[in-house]
Design a protein around this nucleic acid. Structure first.
Lengths: 188, 188
DNA sequence: CGCCGAGTTGAACTGAATCAAGAAACGTGG
DNA sequence: CCACGTTTCTTGATTCAGTTCAACTCGGCG
């Protein structure tokens, strides 16, 4: 639980009383690789903190499904749009490795917003970060080629490319596995 | 000023005292069509509320610049990522018509967050909405064709297509003006 | 040992970009 | 208010990046 405490404190400091409230709403789980955390069409009821392991976000497809995001150790995860609107999700979340998560229910978060002073600020700051990530992804999709996105991934998160099957990376940068294979060949 | 008051109250109710604080930080401007509100490389210092008129967001390019967003009457606008991080913006904002805006400085918003109880909640809720919009845009870019995006725009915001030059719409849906012209021909 | 999914490579095809030119709409100054 | 010049939109021809279909290799796992 130490990790998540540090994570939150780094965003904005929590008083001991506030941390007690936060932590009382959190429950931990260990899920094996390839576990689906949220099925397409279901409504997201949780905010996750990944203590160990990793996940991917994807829209399931007949052939190759469309992977559009990942989350790793020490990061938050959730189908946040579905969580916020409490409406069915058009994508799924699955673990890519054995994963240990802490999670907070929608009702639990609502209580935190009501019971703590810091809640809304914490929520705002976290959502601001999520917004900035989305915006960056949008501009990247519009303004960069698949090759540029792959190279960026390569320099910014080299670890990712070692741990994640290339077919998911291909989808993430916006091409088929065949096309990514050719990009990699061209580069090296 | 009534419009912005209603806009904010619809998000979460403001007490009279809180509205006094909010409104004291707002200043209004009228800017002609084709005015650049934020130049590429500059840092966004404002959050805008569009009382009348419209704007576009774009990355300037030699030939056709890359338009990736619009905002209209009764909507908020800002290079919010640059605003949040107070770092240089990689895109620009320009009015598409004579526009009346209210604006709030970064410092002004910081004061609101400090001085009012409702501020952080308001900020959180607004940012949540911005996040959901971005996410929707990302998934649309990944999962839909330019033609599908155009048709959606056509059904969801028909007015937009009448008011905005097609070359901006083309860029927004992710193709060249020539390609959009062919899409329109194919459809009709 | 054999099977299956992941990755690579080749060939044919396709949708969109680019290059180019003409038509229509717009706005600006006389 | 018209005339001119500029910008926007359309259409055609060519080129190109990426998809699709298909076959083959490799590595892990039952």
């Amino acid at each position: 639980m130490q990790k998540i405490k540090e994570f939150l404190n780094a965003i904005t400091p929590l008083s001991p009383e506030e941390w007690i409230i936060f932590s009382s709403k959190l429950t931990s789980y260990e899920v094996p690789k390839k576990t689906i955390l949220l099925k397409h069409g279901a409504t997201e009821n949780y905010l996750y903190f990944i203590e160990k392991g990793m996940i991917r976000y994807y829209i399931p497809k007949e052939e190759n499904d469309l992977t559009f995001g990942f989350a790793f150790e020490n990061e938050l995860a959730s189908a946040y749009d579905s969580f916020l609107t409490q409406s069915p999700c058009r994508y799924e979340i699955e673990t890519l490795a054995d994963t240990k998560i802490w999670r907070l229910t929608h009702a639990g978060l609502a209580e935190i917003y009501e019971e703590t002073k810091v809640g809304n600020k914490m929520g705002r700051l976290i959502t601001e970060t999520l917004f900035r990530k989305e915006m960056k992804k949008e501009l990247s999709l519009r303004d960069e080629s698949a090759e540029e996105r792959y190279l960026k991934l390569f320099t910014e998160r080299p670890k990712l490319l070692q741990e994640i099957p290339l077919k998911y990376v291909a989808s993430y940068v916006g091409v088929t596995p065949q096309a990514l294979s050719r990009i990699r060949k061209r580069i090296s």
